[in-house]
Simulated assay, not measured.
Amino acid sequence: MSYRIQSGDTLSGLAKRYGTSVDALMKANPQVTNKDLIYTGNTLNIPGSRDSFEPGTQGQGVRGGGSSGAGNVTAPPGGAGPGTRGPGGSPFDIAMSHMGKNAGSLKLETSGVGADMEDWVPNNVNCANFVSACLEQAGQIKDSQHSASVMTLQGNLDRDPNFKRVDLKDAKPGDVVSMRVGSGQHVVMFAGWKDGKPQFIGSNNVNSDGSQRISLTSMNYPIMSVHQYQG
């Protein structure tokens, strides 16, 4: 999420308020070079607890639980069809290969998706970090387009001529789906349809301690955008 600095704000105070750390704030905001000096009116990227999928919210969240594989996910007639692919393969297939892994462990792996994920991102807010890494591994985005912020990643895809916004009904497995969750955001990838409901794969807050795990699930949040790779 983005936050406009108010008079009296400090990085340490904001880190405490949003459940993150000063170090994470510094890394998410390279324009800040002195942790003790921020300016009223400037905008900060907050890699905090609101930039995530938080299940259990009344009237929202997971519907029908998650599946451990793609076998039960089918497109409706004339629906999803084959997934998008980049020079390095399908981001959907890449994401599925990490099903069930905790984001905190995955981002410490030294190759593949884990190597492309930013280690500093807190374990409860890796949704954009994971999706970015899958897109990188598929060759659909460059390292410079990777972001741990949902809104920044959305903006990067909007500016990329290889991506275009489509309706959910036209989505293909691997398309990037950005959602609004309360005052925050969440990002996942479209995974097809099951029983007429859209399925999504991503780094979700499904562990009992609030941390994230790669899981496949149905969600009912307002969708901000669906980006489809056209390259």
Rank of each mutant, 00 (worst) to 15 (best):
M1K: 11
Y3G: 06
T10N: 09
T10L: 10
S12T: 09
G13M: 01
K16G: 05
Y18G: 05
T20S: 10
T20N: 04
D23T: 07
A24E: 04
K27M: 15
P30Y: 12
Q31Y: 11
T43N: 15
T43S: 15
T43L: 15
N45K: 06
I46W: 05
P47W: 00
G48S: 02
S49I: 12
S52E: 04
P55Y: 04
R63Q: 15
R63E: 03
G66K: 00
G66D: 06
G69C: 11
N72P: 14
N72T: 15
P87G: 11
P87Y: 01
G89V: 04
H98V: 10
H98S: 10
H98N: 15
G100F: 06
A103C: 11
L108S: 07
L108F: 15
V113Y: 08
V113S: 04
G114N: 12
A115N: 08
D116C: 14
D116H: 07
M117F: 02
E118N: 08
E118S: 14
E118M: 14
V125M: 03
C127M: 03
C127G: 03
N129P: 01
A133G: 01
L135Q: 06
E136M: 09
Q137K: 07
Q137W: 13
Q140T: 05
D143K: 14
D143Q: 09
Q145Y: 05
G155P: 14
G155R: 11
N156Y: 10
D158N: 14
V166G: 03
D167L: 07
L168D: 09
A171R: 01
G174H: 01
G174K: 05
V176D: 00
M179F: 09
V181I: 12
G182P: 10
H186W: 03
A191F: 06
G192Q: 06
K194P: 05
K194H: 06
D195G: 15
G196A: 04
G196F: 10
K197Y: 08
F200K: 10
I201N: 15
G202V: 02
N204H: 10
V206C: 02
D209A: 00
G210W: 03
S211P: 02
Q212W: 06
R213H: 04
S215N: 07
S218A: 02
M224Y: 12
M224N: 14
M224R: 15
M224V: 11
V226C: 07
Y229Q: 03
Q230K: 14
Q230D: 08
